[in-house]
């Protein structure tokens, strides 16, 4: 993935109201989160074109569904060119696949968008890259 593609991917996530942190050291970034209202999940893959992020495992799904703030660590090398490749890549590594692309939301009252309906109110993606960008 080149720099332009990476930038485009970050912009897509941000347009979905996702907080994105690009870093060469995800572990270090995680130290900045204090408190106990967040859940961290390691992503299995993501689709470059839609920003859909695939994760796996039943316990991970349960914890992610209950979190107020969901933090996902995604390695740039796990981003795939299309959604099917991303799903297949995730599926080869885990069962119980689930995907998120934004914080939980609803527009069921007069079409007005409200975030944090039943799932996480906030979604942060720490995008781990190999070199400083």
């Amino acid at each position: 993935m080149n720099l332009a593609e990476l930038s485009r991917f970050v912009e897509i996530l941000r347009s979905h109201n996702v907080e994105v942190i690009v870093s060469t050291d995800a572990h270090k970034e995680l130290q900045n989160f204090k408190g106990n209202d967040f859940v961290i999940t390691n992503a299995l893959s993501a689709d470059e074109r839609t920003g859909i992020i695939f994760m796996g495992g039943f316990e991970n799904r349960k914890n992610a569904s209950l979190a107020e703030h969901h933090i996902v660590v995604l390695k740039a090398e796990d981003i795939r060119k299309d959604v099917i490749s991303a799903y297949n890549f995730a599926s080869s590594k885990s069962n119980c696949i689930f995907a998120s692309s934004s914080p939980s939301k609803t527009a069921d009252i007069e079409g007005k968008t409200v975030f944090g309906m039943h799932g996480p109110r906030k979604l942060t993606v720490i995008l781990e890259v190999k070199e400083e960008v």
Partner: peptide, 11 residues
């Protein structure tokens, strides 16, 4: 979009 299906089918 809401997360209710995930909760209903997981918990």
């Amino acid at each position: 979009n809401e997360g209710n299906i995930r909760l209903s089918t997981t918990l």
